[in-house]
Write a protein that binds this DNA or RNA. Structure first.
Lengths: 306, 306
DNA sequence: TCCATTGCCTGACTTTAGTCAGGCATCGCG
DNA sequence: CGCGATGCCTGACTAAAGTCAGGCAATGGA
C-alpha cells in the first residue's frame, strides 16, 4: 500500500475532524449536554422507537433511559407505549421539542453555510464534490464481505431480492425453479461457499460458488442491492470468490448470464472471463463465461499486509 | 448559495466525523484518558511550550497543568523551565514517553491503513485525492480577511515579506523608497484601507487601497504568503477591496505592476482591469491597470446572507 | 524600586458520560 | 398457565472533562 496514501488519510483525520468536529460540537451546544442534543436530533419530527435509538446511537439501555427522562423533564419529549408491544416504548417530540429540534437543525445548516460562505463559488463546487467522494469511499470501506451460512435469513432475503430483480429485468419474467436453482445447501462447504456483503450490519449483496463438475466451480447469485451499487462491492466479491475457489479444489470457474444484465457481463469481462459455448440448459441464460483460476501470490501478500 | 451544497456539507459532517471520529477516538485508547493521549501526541518528539499546548488544544490552564502532572507521574513527560523566561515551562517527552508516542503514532497509521485496506486500488487513489481536496478547501474556508491597522506588527511583517519577495523576483532588486512608498498611514481611514488575511490567526496576506487623485483609488501591496497560495485569497482580497472602494468615495481603481509578477497580472485581467498608459513614475512598474467600480447589489446580497 | 502583568500551579468544585446489577411488566411459545 | 426472553427503568457507582478562584514566582516597564 502506498505510504503517501496512508499519510494523507492521517492528515485528513487530524485536520478535518478537528475543524469540522469542533464546530459541529459547538453548534449543537444549546446549554444542553451533547448527548441530549444528539438524541433530540435523532428522535426527529416523526418520533422513534427507543430500541432503534439505542442501536443508532450505540447507547447503554440505562443511560438512554436517563437521557430520555431528562428530556421529558424539560418538556421536550414524551414517551408513549408502542401499539403492538406494550413493553416497547416510543419517544415523540412535544411541540416544544419540535421547536428545539428546529433550532438545532437551523444551527447545523448555519454551520454548513458559514463553511461555504467564505469560499469562492468555484471552490464551493469543488469542495462539495470532494466531500461526496470521500463520503462514498468511506461508505465503500465500511462494507464487509464474509462467508456466511446460505440458510440464514439474511441470505434468504438477498436471494429473494435477487430473484425479484431478475423477474423485473427479464422480458419473460423469472422463475428460480425453471432456472435450475437447487437447494441452497449447494452453496455451503465443503463443495460451495456463500459470501454476503454487509453495510452497517445490513446485507446488501451476495455471491455464491457451487460445484459443477470435476475441478469446476460455478458462480451463482451475484447480486448487489441497488442503493449500494457503485461502491465496488461486486468486484470485491468476485475477487473473494476466486480466492476461495482454489481452496474448494476448483481450477476453473464458469457462469451463465443474461443479455439484459449488462453490468454483470462487463464485470466478468473486466476480470478476465472469456465467453464460451453453452454448457447448461438454463432457459434464462444466453451468455456463458469461463476463467482458469490459480492461487495468486501477489494477492495473498496484499491481504496479509492489511 | 446552492441548497444542495449546504445539505451535502451537512451530510459529510454527520457521516464522516462519526465514522472517522469514532475510530480515531478508539485507536488513541491506551488505557489512558483521551485528553492525555492527545496531549502526548501534541507534545511530540521535540517537546513543546506549555502555553503553545494550551492554545493548540484550547485547554484551561489549570486542566492542562493537571494533565501534565498526570503524565509526569507516569514517567512519560518531564517539564523544564524555559531558558528565556523562567516563568514559562516546556514539556519534553522522556524516553518512555517517546516510546508511548511511537505506539500512538503507529496506531494512527494502522487506522489509516485499515481504512484503505478494504478498498479497491482505484478507489484508494480517488479517496486520497478527494481527502486532499477537502482539506485544502477547509483550509481556504478558515482564512479570514479583515480591515486592520496598517501600523500593527502583523501588517509590518507582511509588508516586509512582500518587499523581500519583490527584491528576489526583480532583476534589479527592489527598494521601497525608490518605488515611491509613502507612510503606511496612507492605508488607514479615511482615505485608505488595509486588509490582512489570516489563517489560524497568522497573517498570510495583505492588500491595501490609498487615494490617488479625485475619486480614484490605487491598489497597493497585494501579497499572499507562498505557503498560502492557491486558496483563492488574492481573489477574495481584491473583491473585498472593491467593496470598500465605493465607501471611500472611489469610482475608479488603478494600480501598477511588474512583468515578473505574472500571477498578479492574470488576477487583475481576470477581474476586469484593463491595461492603461503609465500614470506614475514608479521605476519598477511596466504595466498599469484600471477598472471602473460600482456598488454591486448582487454581491451585497450574497454577503448579507452568509 | 515598585507594581501591574504574565505564566503556571493547586484545591475545590460541577457536569457529563458511561457502566452494572437488579427489578418489574409484558410477550410468546409450549 | 408457566417460564424464559425481551424491553425498559432505577439506583448506585466511577471516570473523565472541565471550571473557577486564588496563589506564588518571575518579568518588564515606569
Amino acid at each position: 500500500m502506498d505510504e503517501t496514501h496512508v499519510s494523507q488519510v492521517r492528515s485528513f483525520n487530524r485536520h478535518v475532524t478537528r475543524r469540522i468536529g469542533a464546530l459541529g460540537g459547538d453548534y449543537l451546544g444549546r446549554g444542553r449536554p451533547l448527548a441530549e442534543s444528539r438524541l433530540l436530533f435523532e428522535i426527529g419530527a416523526g418520533g422513534a422507537d427507543v430500541r432503534e435509538l439505542r442501536e443508532r446511537l450505540a447507547l447503554d439501555s440505562g443511560y438512554l433511559s436517563r437521557l430520555l427522562r431528562a428530556l421529558e423533564a424539560d418538556g421536550l419529549v414524551a414517551c408513549v407505549q408502542s401499539a403492538d408491544d406494550r413493553r416497547a416504548r416510543r419517544a415523540m417530540l412535544t411541540r416544544k421539542g419540535v421547536r428545539e429540534h428546529g433550532v438545532l437543525d437551523r444551527r447545523s445548516q448555519a454551520f454548513a453555510r458559514s463553511l461555504l460562505g467564505s469560499l469562492l463559488p468555484a471552490q464551493r463546487g469543488r469542495l462539495v464534490a470532494a466531500m461526496a467522494e470521500v463520503e462514498r469511499c468511506l461508505r465503500a470501506s465500511s462494507v464487509e464481505i464474509d462467508v456466511e451460512d446460505p440458510c440464514n435469513t439474511d441470505a434468504a432475503a438477498c436471494f429473494d431480492a435477487y430473484f425479484r430483480e431478475l423477474a423485473a429485468r427479464f422480458d419473460r419474467g423469472f422463475d428460480p425453479v425453471q432456472a435450475g436453482a437447487g437447494s441452497v445447501t449447494e452453496y455451503a462447504p465443503p463443495h460451495g461457499v456463500l459470501l454476503l456483503a454487509r453495510l452497517d450490519g445490513q446485507a446488501v449483496g451476495c455471491a455464491a460458488l457451487r460445484a459443477s463438475g470435476r475441478g469446476i466451480g460455478e458462480i451463482k447469485r451475484m447480486w448487489v442491492a441497488a442503493h449500494a451499487r457503485g461502491l465496488g462491492i461486486a468486484q470485491r466479491m468476485i475477487e473473494a470468490l476466486e480466492q476461495h475457489a482454489t481452496g474448494l479444489g476448483f481450477h476453473r470457474l464458469r457462469l451463465d448470464t443474461h443479455h439484459a444484465l449488462t453490468e454483470a457481463r462487463a464485470l466478468y469481462v473486466r476480470n478476465g472471463y472469456r465467453e464460451i459455448e453453452r454448457y447448461n440448459d438454463n432457459p434464462y441464460a444466453d451468455h456463458w463465461f469461463e476463467k482458469r483460476v490459480v492461487r495468486r501470490s501477489g494477492a495473498r501478500r496484499e491481504v496479509a499486509r492489511t
